[in-house]
Design a protein around this nucleic acid. Structure first.
Length: 348
DNA sequence: TTTCCCTTCACGG
DNA sequence: CTAACGCCGTGAAGGGAAA
């Protein structure tokens, strides 16, 4: 049995924007792609709760969010600024717990099994973190405490925004039973659909999903199926990992309009390589391969990959090695929507 | 036979 | 045109080639 705290900054990017510009408060704020009067091709990155009242959500096409809330304040993603704020927030968190896994700019898991020793102490620690972040950065977050990563995350979801919730092991099964299967991390729309079809039900709660045998889940979902079987019962043995190794670094670009213009594509392609290589070098990584992605006008998406000897490579090297992959895509007589370049890397 | 490579799929933030 | 859909990164499946 572990004691895990999950910390999640509330509507992070939008909250930072509100802080920088207090007159945005009480108004719907949408951070994401340029809506371009409803013609934009990007998506919503984050929005505040005022915008959510209109049905706007993160991940939604920006064009749809514009239909739902044309009067909202639409802001571009100021990633460099959010990164700085995030670094400051993480300093607070690091000061409070030894074992910390950074999930993203605005989320972390803390394994406080040893330091806290009890759920009561863990709750106090979580409150301290919330206060520390608010004092330093004037931003709110939500904390969840549970017996493992999954339960900490679910507790956090239930308490948002600006909340703090503990789910005791004795409460775990009762709380899960009436929840939708999709609250389980790793169960997305596809997996949920498959489970619904398998049980021939319109909606599936976790108590219903528990009727499925472990062997059936394994047949349906392979090794993930076994994890699901245990997760339905509140069990998750995935560890808090402090330093994940970077496996790949890449960039991709969607054109404003689908294109066949080879010159335009090449120009963009070279920029993707340059930018990727910059990141690779900043992180002092060695390259062992490249992947080229192409999405055509009909959304058909393909990748081509080639591996080579681990080493340091120049922009020209990467260009030469990957060009045949890209040309393979240009041969097709279809307009291109997106191209991507990714380096497979190893830490040196 | 085992391991590695390539491609796709699904997911999460 | 009743769907619209970015950018980044991970893990796993499944088929085939290489060692």
């Amino acid at each position: 049995m572990s004691i895990i705290i999950h910390i999640d900054m509330d509507y992070f990017f939008a909250q930072v924007e509100e802080r920088e510009n207090p007159r945005f408060k009480d108004k719907p704020v949408v951070v994401g792609a340029d809506p371009k009067e409803g013609k934009g091709r990007g998506v919503v990155s984050t929005c505040n709760y005022e915008a959510r009242k209109y049905g706007v959500k993160s991940g939604m096409p920006i064009s749809k969010s514009y239909q739902l809330a044309p009067h909202a304040i639409f802001l571009p993603v100021n990633m460099n600024f959010y990164k700085k704020v995030s670094a400051s927030v993480f300093k607070v968190i690091e000061g409070c717990a030894k074992r910390m896994e950074k999930v993203s700019l605005d989320e972390a898991y803390l394994d406080v099994t040893k330091e806290a020793g009890s759920f009561k102490k863990a709750k106090e620690k979580a409150l301290k973190i919330k206060e520390g972040i608010f004092k330093k950065e004037n931003l709110t977050c939500t904390a969840g405490v549970g017996e493992n990563k999954m339960m900490a995350k679910i507790a956090c979801e239930l308490a948002k925004p600006n909340g703090l919730k503990v789910i005791l092991p004795s409460e775990t099964n009762k709380i899960l039973s009436s929840m939708d299967v999709a609250v389980i991390p790793g169960i997305g729309p596809r997996t949920k659909e498959k489970i619904k079809n398998y049980l021939k039900e319109k909606e599936v709660k976790i108590k219903d999903a528990k009727r499925i045998k472990k062997s059936e889940l394994e047949n349906l979902f392979g090794k993930r199926g076994k994890d699901f079987f245990y997760k339905f019962r509140g069990k998750d043995d995935s560890p808090v990992v402090e330093n994940r190794e970077t496996k790949s670094v890449g960039r991709e670009h969607t054109f404003a309009e689908d294109t066949k213009d080879a010159e335009k594509i090449m120009k963009t392609y070279k920029k993707l390589i340059t930018s990727t290589l910059l990141s690779v070098r900043r992180k002092k990584l060695k390259i062992k391969g490249v992947v080229v992605t192409c999405r055509f006008e009909d959304f058909d998406t393909h990748t081509k990959q080639v591996s080579f000897k681990v080493g340091d490579y120049s922009e020209e090297d990467l260009y030469k090695k990957s060009l045949p992959l890209l040309l393979g895509f240009l041969m097709k007589n279809k307009k291109i929507r997106l191209i991507g370049f990714r380096s497979l890397v190893v830490e040196s």
